[in-house]
Design a protein around this nucleic acid. Structure first.
Lengths: 187, 187
DNA sequence: TTCGCTTTTTGACCTTTATCAAATAGGTTG
DNA sequence: CAACCTATTTGATAAAGGTCAAAAAGCGAA
């Protein structure tokens, strides 16, 4: 999924807009298992995934690692709290596959928004999707069983199971790897 | 906490802005245990709580009720997915105490944003706080124990325990009321 | 103060999930 | 193919939390 195609799905891109957009975005090819952001660092970029997979994760006080979210082709990714508020990140980002990414800095993105208010439509679209997804996630973690959450993920992002190791998926679901393995074998 | 005072904390309010603001907001005094939004309804208002407490909750397929969030004085409240995307709400809102609320419709709020771009600062402030809070909540539900989540709530919103019944708090924490009661007694 | 209602606590038991350890399966490289 | 490394599964046991039922505590109204 190409970034400009993606944008065109939601807003019409004039030649001027496209030119200014291309001026501020950077294309980068990143190998698998590359850490893009570590705890304490500033996440200064908003990424768009043209190809590949990025995992956002978190270290608990005990050093245990938990997957916060998987992002695949067509997704915008950043460590929101760090990027938006210019704070050191508590989360990490890493590629789990060879990836093709586009990135833009906050300043450039905001300049784009000011020059072409139409981009705000795109921004609010992304924000609203994110918000809805987070709400669903919270209610799921609150009252669904591990098996139900597993089945939801299987339905929503089936490809994840081919692309990501069980341990990462288990921590995303909030359960241990062994429990996930047992849920799977009973099907 | 007064709405205009709240706003003044973050952005300077000119007399013009204030006048236009007052023109679009409605003050309402709502008794306790009043349902403001039910599933299937459209949530057309953004509320500001001057006084009182609003609970946002959710019915699972089995009819079980889960508290999604508590909101108190100084908070902006709405059913985000319904308000922003003009969809029927899957969540409910109810007052748990006699409350003094201010409300504004989406159209009026957007008109205000267009006329005074400074209000965007307020908007993004609210959105960012919400986002951060939701992220924390997700990671907490993912890998913290019930006791740890209880302790976090006790630290972040101690007054909730004086104001809300245990059942509501338990579902907010993702545990049964009995478990919460046992956690409390062991302290 | 007592009755009735609601909320919270307690007890017994059961289910789910975590943890630790070991076995197995899969893949990669020499 | 063999050796090695990593990921996944399996088994045994323990801990956490759920469920159901009943008791106790709070609280308002008569």
């Amino acid at each position: 999924m190409n970034l400009t195609d993606f944008i065109r799905r939601h807003i019409p891109l004039t030649p001027d807009m496209l030119e200014d957009l291309l001026r501020v975005i950077t294309r980068e090819e990143t190998p698998a298992h590359q850490v893009l952001v570590s705890p304490g660092q500033y996440c200064r970029k908003l990424f768009f995934i043209e190809e590949g997979l990025i995992r956002e994760y978190y270290f608990s006080m005990s050093g245990k690692e938990t997957t916060y979210r998987f992002n695949t082709e067509g997704a915008f990714v950043t460590v929101a709290d760090s990027f938006l508020d210019n704070q050191p990140s508590r989360y990490s980002l890493e590629t789990l596959e060879d990836s093709v990414l586009y990135s833009v800095t906050l300043a450039d993105f905001e300049a784009l928004l000011r020059k072409y208010p139409l981009f705000e439509k795109l921004q609010s679209l992304i924000q609203h999707q994110l918000l809805l997804e987070m709400k669903d996630r919270i209610t799921a973690l609150q009252f669904q069983t591990a098996k139900e959450r597993y089945e939801s993920l299987l339905e929503d992002q089936p490809s994840i199971f081919q692309r990501v190791s069980l341990g990462h998926i288990a921590s995303y679901l909030g359960i241990s790897q062994e429990t996930l393995s047992r849920i799977r074998s009973k099907k």
